[in-house]
Structures are given as C-alpha cells and as structure tokens.
Design a protein around this nucleic acid. Structure first.
Length: 113
DNA sequence: AGGGTGACGATCA
DNA sequence: ATGATCGCCACCC
C-alpha cells in the first residue's frame, strides 16, 4: 500500500526539523530525505502552511534563495545570523549543506589536514 | 473530472 | 549568468 499522504507531510516536517542551526538544506534534498524524491513542491507547501519550522534553512538547488522581496532579505539575514556564509547570491553549500543520516555520503571525504 | 498553483529542478538557447 | 520550457507532485477550488 502506498504511503498515506499524511506521512508525507509528517516526514517532510521531520526532515526539516533535523537541519541544525548553522546548516542548510534544499527543497529537493528535504524531499529525498523524507523518502519522497521529486516532491520538492510539497516541501514548499509544508513550509508555507506550518509554523515553528526552521524555514530559513531551506533553500533552492545550489543554495539559492527562492523567496522574493522582503522575505528573501529576512531569510538571508537569519542565515547570516547563524553564521552561514554567502557567496554572491548563494549559500556556500560546500560548507553548510546538511547531510541527512541515511543519505549516501560522498566518499572522498578528506579532512582538512 | 478538470484546471490552476506553488519558496522546485534540470536542461537548453 | 539569465530566461524559457517542461516535468513533477499534492492540494484546492
């Protein structure tokens, strides 16, 4: 049986809440982490409807802010307040993208010597 | 049932 | 880099 739609929302919220302070993630990544690849638009839906989520830590692919106008400004401010570094209009994902447990980690992880 | 809507994403000109 | 297009998926009239 297919997963109940409710699960989708629950899973997505849960995934969003896992992103720690100072880290960020993307709509697509959240969807995958929640077990619904391709449901990035649903992630947006959840973010818009529910409160109490670290909404500012969720960005578009490539670390780009997808909000418009004042909201975009606020998101950037909030992130910078957490120590997130921007490179032009995008967040430096190399440094701040959160790795969900259970998700395939890149091999070739070399620690800073 | 049918059509419109998103804080999307990947691709191409 | 920017804008257009198409594919996606659940939700709401």
């Amino acid at each position: 049986m297919p997963k109940p739609r409710n699960d989708l929302r629950r899973a997505i919220e849960s995934a969003i809440r896992k992103v720690p302070r100072g880290k960020v993630s993307t709509y697509g990544a959240i969807a995958r982490a929640a077990g619904f690849p391709g449901a990035s638009r649903q992630v947006v839906g959840v973010l818009r409807r529910s409160f109490g989520l670290p909404w500012h830590r969720i960005l578009g692919a490539g670390g780009q802010i997808k909000l418009r106008g004042d909201y975009a400004v606020e998101q950037r401010l909030r992130l910078e307040a957490e120590g997130v570094v921007f490179r032009g209009r995008r967040v430096d994902m190399k440094q701040h993208e959160y790795n969900f447990a259970g998700r395939k980690a890149r091999k070739n992880v070399r620690r800073a010597s």
